[in-house]
């Protein structure tokens, strides 16, 4: 640890973590704002408008509210898990960002050339899937620990949903990274389909909608958990965003910027924002899957198609050689 190089690498990593954490948390808050705004305009409303110009300070007000609200602990909850599950959800969702490269180039901080990624490991994508696969526990355990049958059912329902699209999602990536050719069209549809699903479970949606599907009004997991613990579930908004980031990285060609001067992180950001807008757009204009329809779709349509995709792409790769 006395090695100056090691120490500066540690310091730079710390700086990167802190900066990125700040950015991501702010982004999560503003994504809720963004979605509420877009949704409102699609429905001919104004959306948040009171706090700050165009409601821009609304996320801040929400954050303060989550922090200051009394954290009531109902009787009969499993104390440890009741507090740990929301934390787990937030932590896991956010830590996946560490593996995302934000631009191709390295930048110089404190005289050390450092790539625009926190953890550059050679199985980055797998690591992301590993972390998101543990994320299921946050939801399931939050539902269970609340000691309410509605929470339990909601938690189980959400996690069952998560599992049923996770599988096809992971498989759909195999095709892309096996070939790197753009037969990835099929895979890309799958991919988007997979990532379309987590959004209904983030409270962002059920929180803002006036009249969601009757059954889903009880979003289950977030029924009993309140205050800051509830706020933690907003961390899961990172997950769909992460999916969109991966989508942007995998499918929207990452050749050098068309417009000179807009490079690296900004180009990346533009791609992500574009996909994000389309995402919110689709979500608020097309009818939504009921959870059992979603699961049937996941297991009986997406999964076989994903398998077929893997077989066909590997066949194509093998024939090419």
């Amino acid at each position: 640890m006395n090695d100056p190089v090691a120490r500066s690498i540690l310091l730079v990593s710390l700086v990167k973590v802190v900066v990125l954490l700040f950015l991501v948390l702010t982004a999560v808050a503003y994504l809720v704002w963004f979605e509420r705004k877009v949704a409102a305009h699609i429905q001919g409303r104004w959306g948040p408008y009171r706090v700050g110009p165009h409601g821009l300070l609304q996320p801040l007000a929400d954050g303060v509210k989550f922090l200051l609200k009394e954290d009531a602990t109902p009787a009969g909850v499993d104390r440890f898990l009741y507090f740990a599950a929301p934390l787990l959800t937030m932590t896991l969702a956010i830590s996946t960002i560490a593996m995302i490269p934000f631009g191709p180039a390295s930048i110089h901080i404190l005289g050390v050339a450092t790539p625009l990624v926190i953890a550059n490991i050679n199985v980055g994508l797998l690591a992301i899937f590993a972390i998101t696969s543990i994320g299921v526990y946050g939801v399931a355990l939050a539902g269970w620990s609340s000691n309410s049958k509605y929470s339990l059912l909601g938690g189980l329902r959400s996690s069952a949903q998560m599992i049923s699209y996770e599988l096809s999602l992971t498989l759909s990536v195999v095709g892309i990274y096996a070939s790197m050719i753009t037969v990835a069209c099929l895979a890309s549809i799958l991919f988007l389909g997979g990532w379309l699903s987590p959004f209904p479970q983030t409270p962002g949606l059920d929180w803002t909608r006036y009249l969601p599907a009757g059954v889903l009004a009880v979003a289950g997991v977030a029924l009993i958990i309140n205050g800051l613990g509830y706020g933690n579930f907003f961390g899961r908004i990172v997950l769909p965003v992460l999916g969109l980031i991966l989508f942007a990285l995998s499918f929207l060609c990452s050749r050098p910027s068309v417009i000179d001067g807009i490079q690296g992180p900004f180009w990346f950001l533009a791609k992500v924002l574009l996909v994000l807008f389309v995402y919110v757009w689709v979500r608020w204009t097309l009818p939504r899957f009921r959870y059992d329809q979603l699961m049937r779709f996941g297991w009986k349509v997406l999964f076989p198609v994903a398998l077929l995709n893997v077989v066909l792409t590997s066949l194509a790769v093998a024939l090419r050689k």
Partner: peptide, 17 residues
Amino acid sequence: EFIAAVQIIVYAGAIMV
């Protein structure tokens, strides 16, 4: 790293779920 990721995906993520 691969074994580590698979360990988490398969055991912690799938079987234990």
